[in-house]
Structures are given as structure tokens and as C-alpha cells.
Design a protein around this nucleic acid. Sequence first.
DNA 1: AGTGATAAGAGAAAAAAATCACAAAGTTAT
DNA 2: ATAACTTTGTGATTTTTTTCTCTTATCACT
Lengths: 211, 211
Amino acid sequence: MFKKFKIPDATIGRLSLYSRYLKEADEKGIDTVSSQQIAKATGVTPAQVRKDLAYFGEFGTRGVGYNSRELYNYIMKILGLGRRWPVAIVGAGNLGRALSQYKGFSERGFDIACIFDTDPSKIGKKLAGIEICHIDLLGEKARIHNIELGIIAVPASAAQEVADKLLEAGIRGIINFAPVNINITGDNVMLRRVDLAAQLEYLTYYLEDTR
Amino acid sequence: MFKKFKIPDATIGRLSLYSRYLKEADEKGIDTVSSQQIAKATGVTPAQVRKDLAYFGEFGTRGVGYNSRELYNYIMKILGLGRRWPVAIVGAGNLGRALSQYKGFSERGFDIACIFDTDPSKIGKKLAGIEICHIDLLGEKARIHNIELGIIAVPASAAQEVADKLLEAGIRGIINFAPVNINITGDNVMLRRVDLAAQLEYLTYYLEDTR
DNA sequence: AGTGATAAGAGAAAAAAATCACAAAGTTAT
DNA sequence: ATAACTTTGTGATTTTTTTCTCTTATCACT
């Protein structure tokens, strides 16, 4: 269908934002939107919106714009959100627990199926209906729940080890919240690092000597 | 000193990662590292490491490499981490509470000074020693604690309003965790959006039809 | 001192991404 | 029907970022 050629990483992120605006527009009863409107709402340029969409096809009508609901559906399909995805979280610390309860995931089609940890005092407990299991059960649970996505929310020192276990369990997409680089051997596995502290550091870099 | 010309955004993120490796190396007693070693540990190319550093000066010795501790200190200074930064979190929901307790911030010099919310049932309570205050106290608390950084951890529908209040309180750097674009008027304020669900969507985009 | 090995720094080249500018296609009003 | 207007889609251009290549500096060994 698509995805034959290389798409800028940033495009994917913007599509996500466009889709949220489109959903809102559709719910408000606005059934046609222009690239200009999308651009304004999402903080990019109209040309950028059109270019992003052009990677995947022609969704608009010249002189008119885009149908909100239709374009929303297209984008969701492009992003692979035509279905729900079960997710495993490894690490039942503050971050892991918060992520497991974060409403924003569910809204976008992600269901936290299970949380894993090694701490005996945590195992067996439930968090908003989600079971905390021992990491040794990862493979089994992944199979049962058909989990293909994993979130690493453990300290940096344990991140690589956890990643290896996720791969072993057949997980194909990993978000790493530990502030460390992870090496994955083997193709067709996607890895993304999200460094929360580094986000603040972008700010301090610019703020440092602005005053 | 530096920051006279435009630096790639990605460079800042990589510097953060380099610095973590350098700290580790220094603590292990490795006092000289090469761009090659940094590159291997952080998953980039050696040329990239050197180019990133070259934006800010000459920190290495040809034929030798870089002094771990020295380079670490330089990078921390560049990132504005030569001191600690008090941070305000707005939103005492799951995400806000988790972020307020997240160890990773403190390790990098960020102190959560106060959490703000509007829900009367939350106000007055403490979370790991951090007070939850009414949003109306934002200006006052920001002044007292010298807060220049703010984190938005409220639903998308409230994000813009919160951002306006942060600006009014004199906050100069904002991380927005709500999945919506925020408009800020006025210069010399930095804004970054971090969309957690979108991170998973990068994965599903690629995974969608890989199998 | 001389030689070989190592590694930073920097200019040039290449690649990637964003922006521009305009033709094509549609709508509305006359 | 035609004209004026709107808005998409796209090739060309520009800008930004990464990679390559080569020069220069330092160290270790003889």
C-alpha cells in the first residue's frame, strides 16, 4: 500500500498531531478542513502539511480541502492505529506505574496488558486492574496477550538486560525511557529512546544565558 | 561564550547522552575517551560526536582523545546544568504525580519545587515532600522559589490555559505533555512538546506491515 | 630523532528535510 | 459559460544536518 520509501521521522510525529486535530474538528461538526487550518492548529506550515500527506497519497480536493473524518481515518490507518495494541511495561517504579495508568495511551489504542518487575514485594499486586508479574513470565504473557510493544521503565543499569528479554519474548517495538543507549541485534525491531530529563535540558540550554 | 549560531536540535539531545556516558566513564576511572568510544556507547558515528562538540569549541587532544571528566563538565555547562533548576509541574494527575517523583530529574539537576492543580481534594496534600498548591498560587510560588521551568501535565483541553498562566508567572521554559499544540506569544520563552502516545505510534507505524 | 599508529578538527560533499512557487482542479458568483 | 477565487499536489530550490576525507597533532616505541 505505502511505506515503500523513506519517510522523515518528524512526519510521523506530525501526522499524530494532525490526527488529533482532525478528530476534534470532526467532533465539532467541521467536515472540511484546509491544509492552512490544520497547519494553524498544529503549529506548522500549510506546505508542510501537504508534503507530509503527499508521502501517502492524495487525500484532498483542490479548491476545497480535506474531509476531516476521512483524513482522520486515513492517518490512523497509516500510523497503524486501525486496531488496538497490547503493550508490556517493564519496571513498576514511579514511571512504570504512571505510564500504566496514563489515559493518553488508551485513547490512542494502546492497552497496557501487563507490568513486569523483579521486586517480590510488587509482584502479584494490581494497578488499576493491571497485574504486576515477574519478568520471567514475560515470554508467556507476551504470547498469551499477543504483545508486540514494550516499554522500558527501569534504571539505566538494567535497561540493556530488559531489552534483551523483550526481544527474546518476541517484542518488535520498544520505547526506552532509561537514559542510556541500548543495542539491539537483529533486524525488524524498532527502538526509540525517550529521555525525559533531556527534554528539560533542551530548555536549560536555551535559557542558560538568555536573560 | 558560545550559542552565537544555530545548533541542531538533535545535537543538544546527543550532548545529553554523551554526558551520561562520560560521567559513567569517569566514575569507572577511565580518564581518556575517544570520539569512537563515545560514539559506540551512544549509538552514533564518531564524526557526529566530533561535529557536535565542534559547535562549542575544541575539547580534545589530537592523537589522544578527550578527558572524560573535563568533557563532562564542559557539556554540563553547555547544557546549562552548571546549577540546579527548580521546576513547577501543573497537573497532579497520574502523569504529574509520577513526574514529580521521577528520580531521573533530580539526578540531572532538576528539583520539583511545587505541583499545581485546581482540584480542591488534591490541594494541600504532599507528594514525596512536594506540596500540591492551587494554580492561583503559581505566580507567588514561582517568585519565591525562583522557578523558570514548567511542566504541563494536564488534559489537552486545559493545556493552552495553563501555558498562559505559566507565562504570566514568568516561566521561561515549558515542557508540554498534553497532545496538543500550544501557542505562545512573546519571545524568549522556549516550548517543547512531548507526546508519549506518539512515541508508541512511531513504533506501530513501522510495525504495521512488517510481519 | 625518527617512524608508525592513533585520533581530533575542519572543509567539502552528500543526504535529508523544509520551503517555495506555481500549475491543475475545484467552487461560487455573475 | 465565464471569471474570480480557493486550495491541493508537486517539482524546484533552499536550508539544514550528516557523513566523508584529509590535514594536523600527539603519543609510544625504537
